[in-house]
């Protein structure tokens, strides 16, 4: 159990600012994901929280206690490394037992934890092997088990499932979530996979160029993106920019309505699945991609191309003219991004 508060964390490497004032609160027992493009500073933030990097500014507190100056070995957190970082000279079981032994956990308790994790993560056949003899996915599970074995208040996951196949990934992901609920640790979880982030988290933090651009519950992030970056990064979004007058913006497709105050230069967006067939927007079908339950249709008018999601039964072909509409509650006005 640990409530983590990070305030105004900044990190520089030489002149490059990898983090530029990150604020983050992870409630005790919550599951927080960090999502963002490669190089946006996710690993760097985890390294600060774990204590490997001293931030050039800002403070960290766990349960109200300042831990900014504490060395990693004295913090109540464990990290599951992006590069696994297994100890090459120790067997799988010894790797997993390393943390409990360092923290002087009783011997039989250590054995119990190791056995339990080895079973849960499907490593029973490999417990005696050295890491080099394992596949990438197996190594990744050992790294996961090693971090969980310490039973810390805070677990930091750096893309822990990136090397597993789709099925195993699903299984291990559920395993992590169940363990987290049982044991109750706070999880900070880095991923590239937005579906994973939306499915797992209590809170999603979307990072961009060293800052958290938006954080909130998965639904908030999806349905109420605040900036163009967020709208674009999570799911697909159709974007328009122009003058909003009386809640209406005219686009090459027709007039879109939006519940937002007027402005000279406003950016709005809508999700492909918000479109309804029939209405006063229209364009020519440029491409069609059948996805089973639905069809992705790319419609263009003038210089703009938008993407619609329509029911799978609908039969459209390239060259058709499609009439559609977007209800005003499906249109979101965006703010200018802090770091364009």
């Amino acid at each position: 159990m640990a409530r983590l508060v990070a305030e105004d964390i900044a990190v520089r490497f030489g002149t490059f600012e990898a983090l530029r004032g990150v604020d983050l609160t992870a409630e005790s027992g919550s599951f927080v994901t960090l999502l963002g493009p490669s190089g946006c500073g996710k690993t760097t933030l985890l390294n600060v929280i774990a204590g490997f990097l001293q931030p050039s500014r800002g403070r960290l507190a766990v349960d109200g206690k300042d831990i900014t100056a504490l060395p990693p070995e004295a913090r109540d957190s464990a990290m599951c490394f992006q590069s696994y970082a297994l100890f090459p000279h120790l067997s799988v079981a010894d790797n997993i037992a390393f943390g409990p032994r360092q923290k002087r956990v009783a011997r039989d308790e250590t054995v119990r934890r190791v056995d339990g994790l080895v079973r849960q993560l499907g490593l029973v056949d490999h417990a005696g092997k050295l890491p080099n003899a394992l596949s990438g996915g197996q190594q990744q599970r050992v790294a996961l088990a090693r971090a969980l074995a310490v039973a810390p208040g805070l677990v930091l996951f750096d893309e822990p499932l990136s090397n597993l196949d789709a099925k195993l990934r699903d299984q291990v992901r559920n395993e992590i979530r169940a363990l987290q609920r049982d044991v109750g640790f706070t999880a900070i979880y880095v991923t590239h996979d937005q579906a994973e982030a939306l499915a797992l988290s209590d809170m999603v933090c979307l990072m961009n160029k060293g800052v958290i651009e938006q954080k909130g519950a998965p639904r908030d992030i999806y349905f109420r993106p605040r900036t163009r970056f967020v709208a674009d990064f999570i799911g697909a979004a159709n974007l328009h920019r122009g003058k909003l007058c009386g809640g209406a913006m005219s686009t090459p497709l027709g007039v879109l309505h939006c519940c937002h105050e007027d402005g000279e230069d406003v950016e709005i967006c809508w999700r492909p699945e918000a479109a309804r067939l029939g209405g006063d927007l229209s364009g020519t079908v440029k491409a069609v991609a059948f996805q089973g339950a639905h069809v992705d249709v790319f419609v263009s008018a003038g210089p703009e191309t938008v993407r619609l999601q329509v029911p799978g039964e609908l039969n459209v072909s390239i060259g058709d003219t499609l009439q559609f509409s977007v209800p005003p509650e499906g249109v979101i006005a965006l703010e200018a991004s802090a770091n364009a």
Partner: peptide, 23 residues
């Protein structure tokens, strides 16, 4: 010895001398 390996040991509670002895 990759940095992350030493970081991992430190993260799991190994101090300077323990890292030297065990890793």
């Amino acid at each position: 010895i990759p940095d992350p390996v030493l970081n991992a040991a430190q993260d799991l509670g190994a101090g300077k001398f323990a890292r030297f002895r065990k890793i």
